[in-house]
Design a protein around this nucleic acid. Structure first.
Lengths: 379, 379
DNA sequence: CTGTTAGCGCCTTCAG
DNA sequence: CTGAAGGCGCTAACAG
C-alpha cells in the first residue's frame, strides 16, 4: 500500500463498520452522500453543503465531513445531479467518421470550446448513413444534450429534411439546440443553428485560378452531386466556367469516394479512357492525393503536364509533392463557433428561435501544383 | 406544416388541454411519463409498461398510450434511467488530440465496438497534459462510465503511477474499469486492463532492416525518452544496434515534437550541424513527413543518399515520395479490443480482478524509402 | 448552523 | 390487466 500519503493515520482499507444497514466500508458500487453522512455522523444535506461550499457549515463538522468524503472516495453522481436540476452539461457531436482529417479538426474545435465552457462531449459516428445519423440524434436527445451538433454534408432529399426538421423542433422544445455544421439550413422557421463555410465561393476561386492560368479542360474529380458538399463545390466550378465563357462538359466530371484508394483507382481508369484534360480539381485533398499518385504513375508531370488543386487544406496536403494548391476551410473555427452559438442561444427564453446562420470565409492557398497548360493539345 | 403524415387526423400542434395542473401541451422542456399518463388517462406505470413492452397491457389502453406518446413527442430521460438501475451505458475515451491520425483510428475502433454493443462514447481531450488527463478520468467517473479508456503514451513518473492507480481502484470499486491503451501497466495488483502493441519489437524490426541494408549510422529522430511510447521505440532501436554489434551514439538521437512542423525544423537544424548519418528512424510517420521535407530540401535523395523509416503506418504515409517504409500498428483493433475486454470484464463479480493484459503484434511494411547506404562516408 | 421534508423521472415491487 | 407506493442520489426549501 504505498499509495497513502503519510499524513493520515487511517488507511484507505476496511474501517470499523458500526452501522447495521451496511452503510459504508467496501460495498460494491460508489459511495453515496448517505454513506458519507453516516460515517461523518451528520445528515445528508450537510454533506451536500460542504461539497457545494455555498452555505455556512461549522468548521469542525466540515472537517469531519471532508475526512469521510476522502476516506470513502466519494464521487458525485452526475445523473442524479442532472435529474435534479440543470441539464447534464453535455454537447453531442455526430459525424461520419473520426478518421477523416476535416472531421477530426471539426471535432477538435468542438471539444476545445465545449470543455472551455465546462461541457463534456458525447460522440456518435454515423458512417455517413442518414438513418444512423437520425438515430444518433435521437439518442443524444435522450441524453439531454444541451446541443446536438451534426457535422458534414448529407444527401439532401425530402425525407431527410422532414425528419431532421422534426428533430430540430423536438430538440428546441426540450430546451436543446440542433446545429448543422457544414450543411445547408432546413428551410424557414425550423429552429436550427447553421454554421457553414463559403463552399461554393472557394470552389469558384480555385477553379478561377486554373482558368486564369489558361486551363480550359478542367476535370472535376471526386464526390457525388447528390451530396451537399460536393454539390456546392460543383456549383462553384460551374459558375467559374460560365464567367470565363468556358462551356461545361459533363464528360469532365468523374465521381470518386472521398478516400485515397478509390480516388487513385478512378483516376487511373479515367486516364486509361482519355487524357483529354489539362488540369484536375479534386473535391478533397485526400482525393487529390489519390489522383496525384495515379497521374504520376501514368508518367504525367504535375504541374508540368497536368495541374492539380484540392480542397480542405488539411495537414497531409503538405506531404504531397508538388505542394498542393488548395482551398482553406476553417474547420476548427467552425467547431468552436457551433458550440458558442448553440450554448449562447440557450440563454434566450424566446420561443421565436433567432435562427443563427453563420457563413465563414474560405480562401485559396497557393502552392506549387498549378502551372499553365502545356502548349500542345492533349497533355 | 408539411411534416405530418397524412394518416393522422390530429396534428402535432397545440391540443385541447383539460388538465388544470398544466400537465401537457407546449410546456417548455421534455415531456415526462407523467405528462403522457395524464393525457392518455392512465397511470404512470402503465405508460412505462407500454414502452418496455415486457408486460401485458390491454390493447385499447396500449393504443391510447402510444398515441399520447407520439403526440407529446416523448423521449425517455436517460439520467433518470441511469439513476434508477443499471449504468448509463457509456464508454469514456480519453486521448491527447483527436487530430492525430493514430488517435483517430483508435477512437474509431472504440466507437465502432461501443456502438455495436449499444454504448455511447464520451470523449475527453487531455492535450497531453497529465493533470488534465487525470481530471478527465475523474469526470468520467462522475458520469458513471462503464469503462474509461485512456489512449496513448505518457510521461511515466512516480506521481502519475500513484494517482492513476488510485483511480483504477476507485473505478474498479464502483464497478467500472480502467483501460490503458498503448501504455504500460501500473504494476502488480492494480485493477486495470492493458492493451498494448509490440512497440519495442516493431522498433527493433525496422531498425534491423536498416542495419541489414548496411547502415551503421542511424539517426533516431523525434519524441522524447521521458514518454513511454518514445522510450519503447528507443529501446527497440538500441537492442537492434546491440545485436548487430553497432555502438550506440547519443549524438545520433534528436528530439522533436510529434508534428510535421517541428520535425522539419529540427531536421533542418541537425543537417546544418552535421550530416553524419546515412539513415533516419523517425519515431512517427508524421515526424518522417517533416524529416523528409527537410532532407529533400537539403538536396539529399531518399533513399539514395539517406534512408528513412517511420512508425504507425497511418494513411498519409502513402502520400510521401518515396513511399515510406514503416511499422504497422493495429490501432483500430486495439480500440475494439479495449472495449471488448473492459465490457466483458464487468461481467465478472470477482473482487480479484483478472488483470487483462493484451499485447498485439506489429510488423514492418516494406516500401521504397530504404536502400543501402551510399559508398562514400558521410552521405 | 443543522436536520427534516419534498421531489426531479423512472421503474419495480406489491396490491387490487 | 392496472394503480399505488417506494426509492435510486441529489439538492432546494423550510423549519428548528
Amino acid at each position: 500500500m504505498p499509495d497513502v500519503p503519510s499524513a493520515h493515520p487511517i488507511t484507505l482499507g476496511p474501517v470499523t463498520n458500526d452501522f447495521p444497514e451496511g452503510a459504508d466500508s467496501k460495498r460494491r458500487g460508489r459511495a453515496t452522500l448517505k454513506d458519507v453522512a453516516h460515517r461523518a455522523g451528520v445528515s445528508v444535506p450537510t454533506v451536500s453543503r460542504v461539497i457545494a461550499g455555498n452555505y455556512p457549515v461549522a468548521l469542525s463538522t466540515k472537517r469531519r465531513v471532508e475526512k469521510a468524503l476522502r476516506e470513502l472516495d466519494y464521487v458525485a453522481n452526475t445523473h442524479a445531479r442532472a435529474l435534479r436540476g440543470h441539464g447534464a452539461g453535455t454537447v453531442a457531436l455526430v459525424l461520419q467518421d473520426v478518421r477523416g482529417e476535416a472531421f477530426a479538426q471539426f471535432a477538435h474545435g468542438i471539444e476545445e470550446e465545449a470543455s472551455r465552457r465546462g461541457r463534456l462531449c458525447l460522440l456518435c459516428v454515423s458512417g455517413g448513413d442518414p438513418d444512423r445519423e437520425l438515430q444518433a440524434v435521437h439518442l443524444m436527445r435522450q441524453q439531454g444534450a444541451e446541443a446536438v451538433i451534426v457535422i458534414g454534408g448529407v444527401v439532401d432529399d425530402e425525407a431527410y429534411r422532414r425528419r431532421m426538421s422534426e428533430i430540430a423542433r423536438s430538440l428546441d422544445q426540450a430546451g436543446s439546440r440542433l446545429v448543422l455544421c457544414g450543411r445547408p439550413p432546413l428551410g424557414e422557421g425550423v429552429p436550427v443553428t447553421v454554421v457553414e463555410y463559403d463552399n461554393e465561393g472557394g470552389a469558384y476561386a480555385v477553379t478561377s485560378r486554373l482558368l486564369a492560368a489558361g486551363h480550359r479542360r478542367i476535370l472535376l474529380f471526386g464526390g457525388d452531386v447528390a451530396h451537399t458538399t460536393s454539390a456546392q463545390r460543383f456549383a462553384g466550378y460551374r459558375r467559374a466556367l460560365t464567367d470565363y465563357g468556358v462551356p461545361y462538359e459533363k464528360d469532365l466530371v468523374v465521381k470518386a469516394a472521398f478516400d485515397r484508394g478509390d480516388a487513385y483507382l478512378r483516376m487511373r481508369e479515367r486516364l486509361a479512357a482519355a487524357r483529354d484534360f489539362t488540369s484536375v480539381f479534386a473535391l478533397t485533398d485526400v482525393v487529390a492525393a489519390g489522383a496525384l499518385r495515379a497521374l504520376t504513375e501514368a508518367g504525367l508531370q504535375v504541374p508540368g503536364d497536368v495541374s492539380l488543386v484540392g480542397y480542405d487544406d488539411v495537414p497531409p496536403a503538405t506531404d504531397l509533392r508538388p505542394l498542393l494548391t488548395t482551398v482553406h476551410v476553417p474547420y476548427e473555427d467552425m467547431g468552436r463557433t457551433a458550440v458558442r452559438l448553440a450554448l449562447d442561444h440557450r440563454g434566450d427564453s424566446g420561443r421565436v428561435a433567432g435562427e443563427g446562420h453563420v457563413l465563414l470565409g474560405t480562401h485559396v492557398v497557393v502552392r506549387d501544383s498549378v502551372a499553365p497548360p502545356p502548349p500542345a493539345g492533349t497533355a
